[in-house]
Structure formats: structure tokens, C-alpha cells
Amino acid sequence: MQVPAQFEYARATSVAHAIDLLRRHGPESRLVAGGHSLIPMMKLRIANPETLIDINDLAELTRIGLDSGLLRIGALVRHAELLDSAVVGEHFAIFRDAERVIADPIVRNWGTVGGSLCQADPSEDLSAAFSAVRAIAVIQGADGERTVPVREFHTGPYQTVVGAAEILTELRVPIRPGGGSAYTKVERRAGDWAVAAAGAVLWLDGNTVSDVGIGLTAVGAAHFAAEEAEDFLRGRPATEESFAAAGRIAAAHCNPVADQRGPVDYKRHLAGELTTRALRRAAARAAGAAVETEGA
């Protein structure tokens, strides 16, 4: 039987209370929401927090909404809620695509958007999706709120800019008309972490790519992004040739490592191919085509 080592438990009743609890319990305290990464790590003694601060009651962090040109997603939104959200699906199909292949339906009922980002697993899917759409992370501490671009949110594997007495409260995604987005992933079996995955968002001006965002996960891409491929595509025609070339550039600039999910050359190949496929699907959606979300 695997159980965590002993710890103290406190339940936060508001964001301010959570921050106060973090300050009082010190740097060995951790926030917990879904706990689907943290609790298994505690069972294995990879993580040994002295105090867990339960934030599941913070209803203020559970909202999804539109507000002055921004899609706002609370950090405590469950994966299943992001998947089912009509407003998210309407503006950013990339999240619907990604959520459909994150873990499994039961885990998605409990795991949270904010928890996934703060866990900062280098193979995490939403990190790539939020990187693709250039989301803004909202972080609150005792001295107030600050915003950080998601592309500057992760400082390394399992590390983020969120301080010891701070809490990620929200993701904000700027909405611009004329775009389309998609996410595509290769996994060993349903519900597994990605061998590699790519997300793309693309805006068209006629048949010209006016702007583009490309996110990559599990392949060692800096900031979960393929910035060289984005730079290449901007201003080019939205054609198969352009998307294939962008895929090759993305593959060349990522740094996958060999592990039980595959060797380096295979992952690099996937990074390129999945980038091309995500761009193709995003472009079709930007042009108004109905492109179904791929199943698990």
C-alpha cells in the first residue's frame, strides 16, 4: 500500500487565505487541488511537503469567461470543464483537441488546469497549448497580482516562476478574429503522456499567414514553443509546402531526449510531422472548415 508520509492539512477559504496559509506554513508547504501529480509523487517520497493547503473550495478560481477581448480560464477549472466549455471550443479548438487526449475522462474530472501548468512536467499538454496561443498567467501574492507570459512561466522541468507564497489564479488568452487552432498528439496508449505533441494557432489574411503560434511538448522545445518555425511562417502562403517546411524547422530546433517512450530521432520526426499536421488543421479551421477533434 502506498500512502504519503505524514503532513499537516489546511483548507483555504479564499485566495487571500491560501496565500496567508502559504506564508504561515513556509516554503515546505504546497497547494493541492486535483493532486493527480502531487499525491502520487508524495506516495513515492519524491515530494515531501510538510503542509498541504487544499484550494478545492476556491470557487473564485473556477470560472471560464470572456472579458474585454480575453478568454479567461480560472486555475481551478477542471480538465473536463475546459473540454466541455462551449466558449473555449468556439474560440480555441486547440484546448478541446488537447483535453480530449489528456489523461482519461475520470482523471479529467478532478485534475485542474492550474495544477497541470504548475506541475510543469516537460511532457504536459496544456503548457504547449497555452504557449501556442501566447496566454498570460496571472499570479497572486501578498503584495497583489502580477502577470507573466506563459512562454516565461516555466523555468525548467517541474519549475515555474510562481513564488513560495504565490498562487496561479488565472490564464488569459487574447482573442483575435480570423484564427483557427488545433492540437495533435502521439501517445503509446490511451491516456498516456505524449511521446510528442504539437499545437498550432494561425491567423489568415486571405491565404497568407498573418500570425501564427506553435506549441510543442515532450521534445525539449524552449518555452514549449517553436519560435523559429513561427518566424518562418509569418507572411508566407498557407500551403502544404509552407507547413511541411515549418515542421522541418520545428524538428531541427527542439531537443528531445531518449527514454522509454522512444529514441531521439523518432521524437524529432514526430515533432516535425505533428507540427505540420497541427498547422494544416488550424488553417482549415481558420478558413471556416469543420474539423473534428480527434478521439483518444
Partner: peptide, 23 residues
């Protein structure tokens, strides 16, 4: 014990969760 197998699924406020990974 790792929230993979799903035999521990129960409903929590009406929604299925894997109870080996819920305190």
C-alpha cells in the same frame, strides 16, 4: 495506487473520481 487502473472510482459530489488519489 497511481490513478491508472480505475477500480477505485467513486462519485465525489456526483462526479466519478479515482479515490486512490483523493485525500
Amino acid at each position: 495506487d497511481t490513478s491508472n487502473c480505475g477500480t477505485c472510482v467513486v462519485w465525489f459530489d456526483g462526479t466519478p473520481v479515482k479515490s486512490c488519489t483523493v485525500l
